[in-house]
């Protein structure tokens, strides 16, 4: 988490960054759940982890069977350090929302994007 917060912090301090993409409003994303946004030809899943007051964004594509579905997955946490995660709705493979690593023992990983929230708007940083 700390890296993402740091990145978020960077985004804030750089003020105007051309890599920031206005994705949607905060209330477009259900509490403790996800929604999908379209950025050019890319689908990005955004998660509103209300319980922890955190936001995450990842690719929407599940690497297991190439399904555009992660935004429809359930989020939660695992382990002693409460690693935040999302479970794909298809076969319940889980992925860390922090590192993008697959937590169900496969060697997949998903791309993660830093998120910035400002005045009720959700921004995503695209590299």
């Amino acid at each position: 988490m700390s890296e993402i917060l740091e990145l978020n912090h960077q985004i804030e301090t750089t003020a105007v960054s051309e890599n920031l993409f206005f994705a949607c409003y905060t209330d477009d994303v259900p509490q403790n759940g996800g929604a999908c946004v379209k950025y050019k030809d890319t689908q990005i899943a955004i998660f509103n982890f209300t319980r922890r007051g955190e936001w995450y964004a990842t690719q929407n594509l599940c690497p297991h069977k190439q399904q555009m579905a992660l935004s429809r997955g359930m989020i939660g946490s695992t382990g002693h350090d409460c690693e935040p995660k999302v479970a794909c709705p298809f076969h319940k493979k889980t992925f860390s929302l922090k590192s993008g690593d697959c937590l169900s023992g496969d060697d997949y990983s998903i791309k993660i994007y830093p998120v910035l929230i400002e005045e009720g708007k959700v921004y995503i940083r695209i590299d």
Partner: peptide, 18 residues
């Protein structure tokens, strides 16, 4: 959420939520 606050720990998962 109330159930988790009262009787659980962590942030839940795809097993206990459903």
């Amino acid at each position: 959420d109330t159930a988790l606050d009262h009787f659980g720990k962590g942030d839940g998962c795809e097993v206990c939520k459903p």
